[in-house]
């Protein structure tokens, strides 16, 4: 970009100013103490320089008052750092509910990103200005880390698990995307750009050259291709639980525990179906490990998610004998 010799990164997300303000506080404290120590050393070294080889300075053993003072004061300042840092951390870690979902699959050495609407990108991410974006990420191989310095966000991307991060861009522009966790030979080549666009430009970009349908539509196609619908009947009379309205609800398991059917649970249920079986059902589902890619899993998740809100679909009636509870209100029907 324009600046050939930047000394400070631009602030391009809502959390960036929060992080920078905390930085300024820390810089202030640090500069104060650095100057204090350096000048004390210089001053003492000159004032009390040795004037004769036989001189003996007065004996000073210490001062408990001073020790307490220079323990308590730094500790107090440090506790401010801790509390402030934790507050900013919560801001960074907690995505707002209305965030736009983007799915990220990392592999040596590229970023593959899928938008809900179906657009796929490699090493590039287009997002609208002023809209929170939540990334759900997984890796196909080693640990990577999704890092956009100008947004001040970073999150490791782990194999076999979902991690999330979010940001709300505040400036139109083009920003570096780096992999920040060393991932092998071409680690420094695993970079890309995040494009923040005016909302109307973003809409135009979305509608241009999408093709192939939305993520949920692809998920539905995959659902049929893999013959999931042979067992998972929407009316709940199949050999497997209905998936209608499952996403986000509490699920009762055979071992008596309940789990929330989130991204991680759905993913596990596809790849290791027998790990957490829904109460009232047999563990007859085969594993789809190796049959469906991580991107495919994400499409299936998006499809299952859509089953909750899809208009015209069968109402989320209480399943005949399942342990699936609707998120709220419907729970009574279960018992």
């Amino acid at each position: 970009m324009g600046n050939r010799f930047p000394l400070f990164p631009v602030e391009a997300s809502t959390v960036a100013p929060s992080v920078d303000h905390l930085l300024f506080y820390l810089l202030g404290v640090s500069i104060f103490f650095t100057v204090l120590i350096f000048s004390a050393i210089f001053y003492f070294a000159i004032k009390y320089r040795r004037r004769s080889e036989t001189e003996l300075p007065p004996e000073i053993h210490g001062s408990t008052k001073l020790e307490i003072a220079w323990s308590i004061i730094p500790f107090g300042l440090a506790m401010v750092m801790f509390a402030w840092g934790a507050k900013v951390y919560f801001e960074i870690e907690r995505p707002p509910d209305d965030a736009l979902d983007v799915y990220v699959v990392a592999k040596q050495w590229m970023w593959k990103l899928q938008h809900k609407e179906g657009q796929r990108e490699i090493n590039e991410l287009h997002i609208p200005l002023g809209r929170a974006v939540k990334l759900t990420m997984t890796s196909l191989d080693v640990i990577h880390s999704f890092y956009v310095p100008d947004f001040r966000t970073k999150q490791d991307v782990l194999p076999g698990r979902y991690t999330t991060t979010w940001f709300k861009p505040t400036r139109v522009g083009k920003y570096h995307l780096f992999c920040a966790e060393y991932c092998g030979t071409k680690h420094s080549g695993m970079i890309g750009w995040v494009y923040v666009m005016e909302p109307q430009d973003y809409q135009a970009w979305l509608s241009g050259g999408a093709g192939g349908g939305s993520l949920a539509e692809n998920g539905q196609k995959l659902f049929q291709e893999l013959a999931c619908d042979n067992c998972h009947h929407m009316d709940g009379h199949g050999r497997c639980p209905s998936l209608q309205g499952v996403y986000g609800s509490k699920v009762l398991l055979t071992n008596g525990q309940t789990v929330v059917a989130d991204d991680a649970y759905v993913r596990e249920s596809i790849l290791q179906p027998n790990a957490k079986v829904v109460s009232g059902y047999q563990s007859i589902m085969p594993t789809f490990q190796g049959l469906v890619t991580e991107e495919g899993v994400l499409q299936l998740i998006e499809y299952i998610k859509s089953l909750k809100t899809q208009p015209g679909a069968a109402p989320a009636a209480a399943p005949a004998r399942g342990g699936v509870q609707p998120p709220a209100g419907g729970a009574a029907a279960q018992r």
Partner: peptide
């Protein structure tokens, strides 16, 4: 002098909000 600077920058890394940005 240098340990003071090294130690103080350690405080930046222990501050959760800043560490997210500067770790790695």
């Amino acid at each position: 002098g240098l340990f003071t600077m090294g130690g103080l920058t350690g405080l930046f890394l222990a501050a959760l909000g800043i560490d997210v940005h500067v770790t790695d």
